[in-house]
């Protein structure tokens, strides 16, 4: 969303996706998706790698969801972790309180997240700019606190414990594929929406909400849908995460850092693009891992995260995709372009 001027609906049809340089990139991307699809069967697919990739794919899924509201519709949502938390609790509580099996429980968690998004979205999506951003932070934070103190329902500071996945020796693969399917489903969903009127209405709202409204777009409905679908993605990710970790704790599942990660992944890959958030999630993990590896930081993990955010915001708020794809040469000049445009 940094500078969305040049972020049109690029992929509104599949024609041309296989042509030219873009075709090469898209083919590489498809190969990568295929590779991820067979990854658990590869000889070097250790538990560590499965674990890491599951995390990345869950992040990708949430980031894809954030992109609906933050990237395409242009509303700086800063509380999407609330939907993750609701998904986690909804799934967890349905399993242990109602004795449901995982999939129906997951459905309840995801629907709960969506319903919540609709209920809060109706009033707060009328707010603009900073006000909307802060309202989302406030709601997410308040929800975390309520979950933390409502001990009888949520287990409070003790959290709730879920049953293990059965058979346990397939647990790693199961959660990997859940995350994989969710992320791929998110990509398909993005593509599907962009080819519908809904997609056009989102971009129109981002570019000029008054004009969109005057042209017959029910902007309230479109915004609420964008918000609800982003909640769906985060809610499903939360439910999967809860069952994977077999533990839900308010302090953990409502951490604002998760929202930051979603946004950062989308920004790194390019907001308002189909593949941006997916690729951005990988870039994000690679960056964090490299930095933590090369700098002996220990407990300064958060400082590294902060430093990455600052560097990205100052030098490449349009993401790294243009550099990676070779559309733009990585040079000092290219890095300073943002500053030249926006400094005083």
């Amino acid at each position: 969303m940094s500078d969305q001027k040049k972020a049109p609906i690029r992929f509104s049809s599949l024609d041309g996706l296989f042509k030219g340089r873009q075709g090469v990139l898209f083919s590489i991307f498809l190969l990568f998706i295929l590779f991820l699809g067979v990854f658990p069967f590869l000889p070097f697919a250790s538990g560590f790698w499965l674990n890491t990739l599951t995390l990345i794919l869950l992040l990708a899924a949430m980031s894809i969801g954030w992109n609906f509201i933050g990237g395409y519709t242009g509303y700086a949502a800063f509380g999407n972790v609330a939907f993750f938390g609701i998904g986690a609790y909804g799934t967890g509580l349905s399993m242990i309180r109602l004795g449901l099996s995982f999939f129906p429980a997951l459905l309840i968690g995801a629907v709960a997240a969506m319903v919540f998004a609709i209920l809060i979205g109706l009033p707060i999506l009328r707010l603009k700019g900073h006000y909307f951003a802060i309202a989302t932070v406030a709601i997410a934070t308040a929800l975390g606190e309520i979950a933390d103190s409502w001990t009888s329902f949520t287990g409070g500071a003790a959290g709730i414990t879920l049953p293990f996945f059965d058979p346990i020796e397939w647990s790693g693969q199961f959660f990997y594929y859940m995350a994989y399917l969710l992320a791929i489903g998110g990509l398909l969903l993005t593509w599907f929406i962009l080819n519908r009127k809904m997609g056009y209405s989102w971009v129109a709202i981002r570019e000029d909400e008054d004009a969109a409204n005057m042209m017959g777009i029910n902007t309230t409905w479109s915004k609420v849908m964008a918000f609800a679908l982003s909640a769906l993605m985060a809610g499903l990710a939360g439910g999967i995460y809860a069952y994977w970790k077999t533990f839900v704790l308010a302090e953990e599942v409502f951490k604002i850092e998760y929202t930051l990660q979603m946004i950062l992944a989308a920004v790194l890959g390019g907001t308002g693009t189909i593949f941006g958030p997916f690729i951005g999630a990988f870039i994000y993990y690679i960056l964090i891992t490299l930095l933590v590896f090369f700098l002996p930081v220990g407990q300064l993990h958060a400082t590294i995260l902060g430093a990455i955010i600052i560097l990205v915001m100052v030098f490449t708020p349009k993401g790294l995709m243009d550099f990676i794809s070779g559309r733009k040469k990585l040079s000092i000049n290219a890095l300073l372009e943002n500053i030249r445009t926006y400094r005083v």
Binding site: M1, S2, D3, Q4, G70, A76, F78, G129, H130, A133, L260, I263, L264, V267, L305, G306, A307, I309, I310, M313, V314, P317, N338, I339, T341, Y342, R343, V344
Partner: peptide, 17 residues
Amino acid sequence: NLVIRAPLLVTFLLTFA
């Protein structure tokens, strides 16, 4: 000051960081 005129998300994330 380097990015102050950038869209809201940028300064928001910057001060957050």
